Simulated scan of single mutants.
Amino acid sequence: MTEPRTIVLPTADHGDVTLTEPSWCRGHADHRPDTYRTDLTHYGAEHRLTFNGEELFRLILAQSPLSERASREVEAYVEESGYTGSLTPAGLYDLAAALDAAADNMRAFADHLSALLDGGERP
């Protein structure tokens, strides 16, 4: 049996904090030592949903295991880009098709998250 991975991160309020790091976590190379313990967050790889090369949404697995106010569970963090543009009718159809594809990708991401939460973690 493989031992869980751990990581030690310095914090402003609790010094070094040891966390169990999920296999999907992309690491903490951008960690800042002035972070508070409750704000420590694991992030997975970013999944960008685009239209004509422009980002529409970003989906990321996220978990803040020591949070005092937000959920400590693994969740999908979703960012909407604020895309704007003037489109012809054909462009609107293309955007609608991209949104359909984005919805399919979001459903697949939700399936992955469900499998992860059910203990069937995938690489």
Rank of each mutant, 00 (worst) to 15 (best):
L40S: 09
V74Q: 03
L9A: 07
L117T: 14
S114K: 05
A115H: 09
R26W: 01
P22V: 08
L95S: 04
L19H: 00
H112G: 04
A62G: 06
G91T: 08
Y93R: 15
G53F: 09
R37G: 06
R26Q: 12
R5L: 11
L49M: 01
A98T: 04
S81E: 02
D118Q: 12
S71N: 02
T38D: 11
T2Y: 05
E68N: 10
A70D: 06
D39Y: 15
V8C: 10
E79M: 12
E68M: 13
L66R: 10
E73H: 11
M106N: 02
Y77V: 03
H112Y: 10
T18D: 00
D34C: 02
Q63H: 05
T18R: 09
D111G: 05
T84A: 13
G91E: 03
G15V: 14
A70K: 09
R72K: 13
F109P: 01
A45I: 01
T2E: 10
A62M: 13
D104M: 03
L61D: 03
L116Q: 03
T11Y: 06
I7Y: 00
R69I: 14
R32E: 11
L61I: 05
P65F: 10
A12I: 15
F57I: 00
A102F: 02
A102S: 13
P33E: 09
R26V: 15
D100N: 08
A29S: 14
P123I: 09
H47C: 06
T38F: 13
T38I: 14
L87Q: 00
T35P: 02
E73L: 09
E46A: 12
H14N: 14
D13R: 10
A101C: 03
E54N: 14
Y77M: 07
A103Y: 05
L66T: 11
P4C: 08
P10Y: 05
T41G: 06
A115S: 11
T88P: 04
I7L: 03
I60W: 00
R107Q: 10
F51Y: 08
V8W: 00
G15F: 12
L116N: 01
R48V: 08
E54C: 04
T38G: 09
E80P: 00
A12K: 15
R32P: 02
L92P: 00
E55R: 12
V74K: 03
M106E: 02
E54Y: 07
